[in-house]
Structures are given as structure tokens and as C-alpha cells.
């Protein structure tokens, strides 16, 4: 087990390094940051002055090394615009975005787990078809369209919910719902197919032939086995939710990491954008690592299969 964990951790650290380098290079090679920063009407001299001032005239690898050294000390640089430290900009907003992402994940699991299980118990029944239809619809609706529709229905017509900001718990109802609807289809399909697979195995058939009821089989025998892939997918989804919060936070004017990223992208605030990319990547890598370890712990067979 420890060898398995050590191997996974080393690969994860390497992936983090690769991702940070690729992200850094992409942002630097995609456009002239100095020209973006200096503004549209800047003269060539002004652009050069900005370039020197920001250290953008140095070779790419030197800039990256400098950024990386800072990142290891916990220093992610300062915003080009507000001059505030990126880490303090983050700290002020991370709570809001975490509520959104974790809330959406919990809601998504609470909906998809029972629905996916029921659909698997009765394949091709009306319930199964309904679940498939819901998954298809959830997959096809753009999150920003859904958000605007909810604003117009619950915020304006019915006046049940506030439409922008993040001051009360009620402000989080619509954004969390929109994010959750984005995550539900994949989770629901995974639960259904995982359950179908488990239900087809010999020990379940044995239990069934002995007259154990469907729901009892689900809970006592099948659930744990079907939950393994779900843990991994939840980790993946949490990363996606953090990314998806850009759209949701900008529609609902919620001042979290997503809105910060969107504004920073718009004005070329490179240190903030790089930090966000890194933040979401690291969150994803750590979560999938934890999911892998948890899976290997719950199902020791996986340790052999993946390391061998």
C-alpha cells in the first residue's frame, strides 16, 4: 500500500510540474502580455517599459523558474492591476467558490445516486427512460442559458430568490442548482451502469435467488461496489465544477474565484490567471489522487492492477 501511494504521489507531483509549465508557456506565447497591459493606445516605448518593468523581457524559462521558486514559497506574485498579492485575492474568495462547488457536488450526488440506482433496478422501465431523458436534457442545456432562465422565472416572475450577489444562503440556491445540473448527467449514468454491472454478478444473483428483496440487495451488496467508480468521477466533477463556476459566478455576480478569473482574463492580469489555472489543476490532481488511494484501500485488487 505504501509503495502504491508513493508511486502515485510522485507521478502527481510530476503532472503538477508539467501542467504549470504548459500553462505558463501557453499564456506567454499566446499573445504579447506587455502590449495587452500597456493598453491599446500605448506607444512602442511604453510597451517596452512595461515589458522591462514586469520582467517580461527575460527568457521564458527564466521567468518560469522565477515563478516556480515563488510558488514554492507560497508567493504567487501580485495582480498586475490591483497590486494585491494573488494569494490574498484568492483567500478572500475561496470560501464562496468552495460553497458553490461542494454544495453543487452534494446536490448532484443526492439526486443521481438514488435515481441511477432505481433506473438500474428496472432497466427499460418508464423510470429508466425518464432518468435517461433527464440526463440527456441536462447534458444539452448550456449552463448560462439555464441560469438566465432560472433568473427570469424564480427571480423576476415569481420573486422567490435573489438574482445576484452572495450575501445570504438564498443567494446560493440558483447557482448551486445550475452547477449541479451540469454534473448530474455523468454521475447518474455512471451510477446506473456501475449498478447494472454489479447486479449481473454471481453473488447478487445468488442473493436474489434466495429471495432477498431488490432494495436490500442494492444497499447491502451492490452499493459499495458501484460506489468505487463514483468516487473517482466525483473528484473529476469537483474540478469541472471549479472551472464551471466562471460562467455561473459571472451570471449571478458572485465574487468568487470564477468571477476573479473571468475579470483577470479580460484584462490580461496574467499572475492571477496563471494562479487560477494552477489552483484548479492542483485541486483536480489532489482529488483524483485521494480518490485513487481511497479506491485502492476499499478494493485492494486495484493496487496490484495499477502498479504491476
Amino acid at each position: 500500500m505504501w509503495g502504491f501511494i508513493r508511486g502515485k504521489v510522485i507521478v502527481s507531483l510530476l503532472v503538477m510540474l508539467t501542467v504549470s509549465l504548459v500553462g505558463f508557456a501557453l499564456l506567454h506565447l499566446s499573445g504579447d502580455l506587455a502590449a495587452t497591459l500597456a493598453g491599446e493606445n500605448a506607444s512602442a516605448e511604453q510597451i517596452e517599459a512595461v515589458r522591462r518593468q514586469m520582467g517580461l523581457d527575460q527568457p521564458l524559462l527564466a521567468q518560469y523558474a522565477q515563478w516556480l521558486a515563488g510558488a514554492f514559497r507560497g508567493d504567487l506574485g501580485a495582480s498586475f492591476f490591483s497590486r494585491e498579492a494573488v494569494s490574498s485575492l484568492f483567500m478572500a474568495r475561496i470560501g464562496t467558490t468552495a460553497i458553490l462547488a461542494v454544495g453543487a457536488l452534494i446536490l448532484a450526488i443526492a439526486v443521481s445516486l438514488p435515481l441511477g440506482m432505481l433506473a438500474a433496478l428496472r432497466p427499460n422501465s418508464w423510470l429508466d427512460r425518464l432518468v435517461s431523458a433527464l440526463a440527456l436534457a441536462g447534458q444539452a442545456v448550456p449552463s448560462f442559458f439555464l441560469a438566465l432562465m432560472m433568473v427570469s422565472l424564480f427571480g423576476v416572475t415569481l420573486r422567490w430568490l435573489p438574482i445576484s450577489g452572495s450575501t445570504t444562503p438564498l443567494h446560493f440556491v440558483m447557482p448551486i442548482t445550475v452547477l449541479a445540473i451540469g454534473a448530474i448527467p455523468a454521475l447518474m449514468r455512471m451510477t446506473r451502469s456501475g449498478m447494472l454491472e454489479v447486479l449481473d454478478q454471481d453473488y447478487i444473483r445468488t442473493a436474489r435467488s434466495k429471495g432477498v428483496s431488490g432494495v436490500r440487495i442494492m444497499v447491502r451488496h451492490a452499493l459499495l461496489n458501484a460506489i468505487l467508480p463514483l468516487i473517482s468521477l466525483s473528484a473529476v466533477q469537483l474540478g469541472t465544477l471549479l472551472g464551471g463556476s466562471v460562467i455561473v459566478e459571472s451570471v449571478f455576480a458572485i465574487d468568487g474565484i470564477g468571477l476573479l478569473t473571468y475579470r483577470s482574463i479580460q484584462r490580461g492580469d496574467f499572475p492571477v490567471v496563471q494562479a487560477t489555472l494552477m489552483f484548479v489543476s492542483v485541486a483536480y490532481i489532489v482529488l483524483t489522487l485521494l480518490a485513487d488511494i481511497l479506491n485502492a484501500w476499499l478494493d485492494p485488487r486495484l493496487q496490484q492492477r495499477r502498479t504491476g
Binding site: V11, L14, V15, M16, T18, V19, V22, G23, L26, L27, S30, G31, L33, T36, V236, G239, T240, L242, G243, G244, V246, T261, Y262, I265, Q266, G268, V273, T276, L277, V280, S281, Y284, I285
Partner: peptide, 22 residues
């Protein structure tokens, strides 16, 4: 390794950042 690295990058965020710069 390449696939894992790509999966670790938030696709839509990278697309937003790069497209806004280019």
C-alpha cells in the same frame, strides 16, 4: 502521462485565457 497532464488542466479555463490573448 500526456493524457493525465491534459486531464489535469481545466479545459474551458485554458480555452478562455488563450482565446482572449490571441
Amino acid at each position: 502521462y500526456i493524457i493525465n497532464s491534459r486531464l489535469s488542466m481545466p479545459g474551458l479555463l485554458v480555452a478562455l485565457a488563450v482565446i482572449s490573448l490571441v
